[in-house]
């Protein structure tokens, strides 16, 4: 992981993706309280978990960038 040296355009794409994942996790969590169907609630819960997991994965890819990135 720490020997990854990202290209500038990769950072931009990852920046875009992590933003999407964050919004989706927060939005799905908020919508869990609005639905009546238990299956749909499960889908939203699954979405919160997956989006959170993906955000953390992207976070660790980007984590070297703010500290110089050359590891």
């Amino acid at each position: 992981m720490h020997n990854s040296h990202l290209a500038p355009h990769e950072m931009l794409d990852l920046h875009e993706l992590i933003g999407m994942k964050n919004v989706r996790a927060a939005k799905s969590a908020a919508m869990m309280n609005m639905v009546t169907d238990p299956q749909l609630r499960n889908f939203l819960q699954q979405e919160v978990q997956t989006a959170t997991q993906h955000a953390h994965q992207i976070q660790s890819l980007l984590s070297g960038v703010t500290t110089g990135g050359r590891y």
């Binding site: 990854s4 990769e10 794409d13 875009e16 999407m20 639905v35 749909l40 939203l44 979405e47 890819l61």
Partner: peptide
């Protein structure tokens, strides 16, 4: 409507991820 919103989010996520993949050079990414 919430299911429809979730579906369009998932679709947008798939397309954004696929688009990013076509620009990737780093194996870890």
């Amino acid at each position: 409507l919430i299911a429809g919103d979730l579906l369009s989010s998932v679709k947008a996520g798939i397309k954004a991820t696929a688009a990013a993949l076509t620009e990737t050079a780093t194996p870890e990414v």
